[in-house]
Design a protein around this nucleic acid. Structure first.
Length: 487
RNA sequence: GCCCCCAUCGUCCAGUGGCCUAGGACGCCGCCCUUUCAAGGCGGUAACACGGGUUCGAAUCCCGUUGGGGGUGCCA
C-alpha cells in the first residue's frame, strides 16, 4: 500500500501491479442542532480541501435523525454559512430525515440476523444495575436472551462480541483499536422507533459511496460502533478514516457553543472576511511545507495533504485571526473595500442613514482600509464626518485637553485663526499646524493632538489633513471653537 | 472509575536518526520610519514535559511516568 490515503488501501482492487482507486468522495455531516461553529467550519473546510485537492466530490449530509433537537431554520443557516465560507458541495444535500426507512430497514435486518436484540430496560434500571456492580457504568447485556417483544419503551441494541478487537487505521493517528469487551451493547433503535445516528451513519456512508471519513477527534469513540454495524450489515468496503484534532479554547477544552464565542455567524457580523477565515482555519492542524501561512486558497488546495494534518488540539487564536483578516482587508482594492463595508455603513451604522455621504467615505476609505482589522471597526474611523457632533472619547479628551489644557488652548486659538483663511487641502492644513506648533514651541507630539480630538473626538484615526478636507472648513472651525470654549 | 487520543517557543505550524548552537508565523518587548494610529524595516524574548531504553548518534524510534483532552446518552 504505497498510498495510505487511497481508499481500500491494503486490498488489491485491480489487476496485479495496478491498483485502481475509486474517485474520492467525502462528506460533511452536521447535525442541525445549532448554528455552524468554528469547529464544524474547519471540518467542512478540510473535507472540502481534500476533495478539491483529489479532484473528488464533497457531499453535504444533514444528520437530523433527532427530530426533537433538529430545527429546520438551522439547516438554512448551515447552507448560508458554508456558502459564505466558499465551501461548495456536490449535488443536493442529503437529509437523513428523508431516509429513515433505510435505517429502520437496517435495524430490522440486524434484529433478524441476531446481530441485535430488543431491550426494555429503562435508563434508570441500567444505571442502577451498573451502580450495583460497582465501577463500570453502561449496559450489561441484561436482555440479550430475554426475547423481548416490540412495544412501549422497547429499544433495539446491537450485540457487541464479547471478545476480540475492533480496530482501524487512521490517516492522521495511525492504528487505533478497541477491545470489544470494553464496548457495551449500544442502542441502535430508540423506543420512539427512530434509529440512532450511528446506524444512519453506517448505512449512508456505504450507500453514498463515501471513501474517506474526515471528522473531529471527538468521534473516534463511535468509530468501532459504526465499524461493527457495517460488518453486521454485510458492508465489505472500508472507508479511510481521518480524525481531525479538536479546536480548543484557551483552557485547551473542545470549543463549546455554550461557553465559547464560536458561531461563524458572529464572525461574519464582526466583519471578518471569508477568505481570511478560511485561510486561518486551514492553518489549524495543518501547515504548508514552505511555511507560508497567508496565501491564496487555490495554493492551499494544491498543497493540502490529509496525511500532513497534525494530531494535537489547536487553540483558536483570535489575535492571529485578526492579523490574517487585516492583511486580507489591506489587499482588497479600494472599491472592493468600500463594497464590503456597506453593511456597516448603513443598517448598523451609528449615524442616521440620510447623513451618510458616499463621496466623503470614499475619500477616506483607502486610509481607513489600511488601519482596520475587522470591518465593524470602519464606522469608528469615519463617524466624525457623518455625525452632527463628534463622539468624544473621554480618555482622549482627558489626556489632551485637560492634562495638556494650556498648550491645547494655545494651539486651538492659533489654528482657528489660521484655518479661517488658509487653502483647504491636506498639505496646507498640516503645514499650518506645523507652523503654529513650532511658533508656540510645542513638542511635536502635541501639534496635531488638540486639533484631532476637537474635530474627531478621538486621538487616533485617519490622517488629520485628509480628515479635515472631507469635513470642510465650516464644520471644522465650528468644532474647533466648540472645543476651545469647553477648555 | 473505565476506554480512546494527544504532548516542540505564550499561541499556530516546520522538523520524521546526523543539515538543530531547533526554523517560520501570531503575540509581546526594543529601535527605525512617522505631526495620530496603522503599515513597513531592523533586532530581541521564548520550546523539544519527565525518566528509562535502542543507537556511534534522538526533538525525531520503543517503554514508562506525569500532564492535558475526548468519550463514557434512547445527542451527534
Amino acid at each position: 500500500m504505497a498510498d495510505p490515503v487511497a481508499p481500500g488501501a491494503g486490498r488489491a482492487t485491480g489487476s496485479i501491479g495496478e491498483v485502481t482507486s475509486p474517485p474520492v468522495r467525502v462528506r460533511f455531516a452536521p447535525a442541525p442542532t445549532g448554528y455552524l461553529h468554528i469547529g464544524g467550519a474547519r471540518t467542512a473546510l478540510f473535507n472540502w480541501l481534500f476533495a478539491r485537492q483529489q479532484g473528488g466530490e464533497l457531499k453535504l449530509r444533514i444528520e437530523d435523525t433527532d427530530a426533537e433537537r433538529s430545527r429546520r431554520e438551522l439547516i438554512e443557516i448551515i447552507y448560508r454559512t458554508l456558502e459564505w465560507l466558499g465551501i461548495d458541495w456536490d449535488g443536493e444535500a442529503v437529509h437523513q430525515s428523508d431516509r429513515t426507512h433505510l435505517y429502520t430497514g437496517a435495524v430490522e435486518r440486524l434484529l433478524e440476523s441476531g446481530a441485535a436484540y430488543r431491550c426494555d430496560c429503562t435508563p434508570e434500571q441500567v444505571q442502577a444495575r451498573a451502580a450495583g456492580r460497582g465501577g463500570k457504568p453502561g449496559y450489561d447485556g441484561h436482555c440479550r436472551e430475554r426475547q423481548v417483544r416490540p412495544g412501549e419503551g422497547v429499544v433495539a441494541r446491537f450485540r457487541v462480541p464479547d471478545e476480540g478487537v475492533t480496530a482501524f487505521d487512521d490517516v492522521i493517528r495511525g492504528h487505533i483499536s478497541f477491545e470489544n469487551a470494553d464496548l457495551e451493547d449500544f442502542v441502535i433503535l430508540r423506543s420512539n422507533g427512530v434509529p440512532m445516528f450511528h446506524v444512519a451513519n453506517a448505512v449512508d456512508d456505504a450507500d453514498m459511496g463515501i471513501t474517506h471519513i474526515i471528522r473531529g477527534e471527538d468521534l473516534i469513540n463511535v468509530t468501532p460502533r459504526v465499524l461493527l454495524l457495517r460488518q453486521a450489515l454485510g458492508i465489505t468496503e472500508l472507508p479511510v478514516f481521518a480524525h481531525l484534532p479538536l479546536i480548543v479554547n484557551e483552557k485547551r477544552q473542545k470549543l463549546s457553543k455554550r461557553r465559547d464565542d464560536v458561531s461563524v455567524g458572529d464572525y461574519i457580523d464582526r466583519g471578518y472576511l471569508p477568505e481570511a477565515m478560511v485561510n486561518y482555519l486551514a492553518t489549524l492542524g495543518w501547515g504548508a511545507p514552505d511555511g507560508v501561512e497567508i496565501r491564496p486558497l487555490p495554493e492551499i488546495v494544491e498543497l493540502f495533504r490529509l496525511e500532513d494534518v497534525g494530531s494535537s488540539g489547536a487553540f483558536f487564536d483570535l489575535k492571529k485571526l485578526d492579523h490574517f483578516n487585516a492583511t486580507y482587508i489591506r489587499a482588497l482594492t479600494t472599491d472592493e473595500f468600500v463594497n464590503r463595508s456597506t453593511r456597516w455603513l448603513f443598517g448598523e451604522a451609528p449615524w442616521p442613514a440620510e447623513r451618510f455621504d458616499a463621496k466623503a467615505f470614499e475619500a477616506l476609505a483607502p486610509l481607513v482600509q489600511q488601519r482596520v482589522e475587522v470591518l465593524s471597526q470602519v464606522p469608528g474611523y469615519v463617524d466624525f464626518v457623518f455625525l452632527a457632533e463628534p463622539v468624544v472619547d473621554e480618555a482622549s479628551w482627558e489626556k489632551v485637553m485637560v492634562k495638556g489644557a494650556e498648550s491645547a488652548a494655545a494651539m486651538l486659538d492659533a489654528i482657528i485663526d489660521a484655518y479661517g483663511t488658509c487653502d483647504w487641502d491636506a498639505d496646507a492644513l498640516m503645514e499650518a499646524i506645523k507652523v503654529e506648533g513650532e511658533r508656540l514651541a510645542l513638542p511635536r507630539k502635541q501639534w496635531q493632538a488638540p486639533v484631532r480630538v476637537a474635530v474627531t473626538g478621538r486621538s487616533v484615526g485617519p490622517p488629520l489633513g485628509e480628515s479635515l478636507v472631507v469635513l470642510g472648513r465650516e464644520r471644522t472651525l465650528e468644532r474647533l471653537r466648540a472645543a476651545r470654549s469647553r477648555l
